[in-house]
Amino acid sequence: MAWFLVRRTAQMFFVILCVVTLVFILLRAASGDPARLMNAADASDEVIEATRARLGLDEPVYVQYLYYLRNLLRGDMGQSFYGAYDVRDVVLAALPNTVALAVVTMLVSTVIALVLGIASALKRGSALDRAVQVYVAAAQATPNFWLAVLLVLVFAVQLGWLPAVDFTGPASFVLPVTTMAVALTPILIRTVRQSFIETLGEDYVRAARARGIPRRKVLLVHVLKVASLPLITLLGLQSAMVLAGSYVIEVIFNWPGIGKLAVDSLVSRNFPMVEGAVLVAAVAFVVINFVVDMTYSVLDPRIRLGAGT
């Protein structure tokens, strides 16, 4: 187990290093010379040279890369082009809002998926099962941003029940979380339903019942523990979608998270900020996947103990 942990942690750091490198290359390639961008368009060459020297941009690219890595290790992500902000402070202030949105969405979606998935697995072919199938098909085809617009139109504008934009309190969660849950739940429900049906057909489920274990206990311990494994993997994989989805949702609902920060900075061409936001988003994603992997292995002894894959 300890060795497994070490190996996975090493893997995670390698992927993070790759991510950092990629972001560095991407932004250097895409944004061009930061020194020119930082100064007014008609700035003289001397000013630009000075900026360049100040930022270390007159060094060769690999030296710049090493500087960049060193700065990152120190927690220095540079300065915003506008105003005297540390990128780190702004990004770290935005991160909790994104995480809160994503976590609430995942929790709500997981509960919905477990309830609907298990119910439709146990009552296959029933009206409930069919209704769930219709929901899954429809929700899957709904463009997320459109649903967000519609929800705002109906609940905020026409009915006035819920706040449309900005973060003002718990009620602000309702519309963005609903929007994102509609995107996330279909695949979760399908997976829960499917793995539940498969697990119910296993010999050990019948064997547990034959030993006198009550049905409820068999479902909640024996079946759920096995059937939840695919769900957990999936949640990990989907955390990407939730994060990616949240960037769009944040823009629509004016949610002060990483996604909105990235898009706003992009529009105002505030590149250090974009860089910081993308980096944090990517690292958060890698870390989430790591955590999911670990959870998975704790739940499944076949992986933890390295039995056949």
Partner: peptide
């Protein structure tokens, strides 16, 4: 491929296109 999947695609697409 693994590394690519570890990146938030839409954000990078937005960055590239936004540039």
């Amino acid at each position: 491929g693994d590394i690519q999947l570890a990146l938030p695609f839409i954000l990078i697409a937005i960055v590239i296109l936004g540039m």
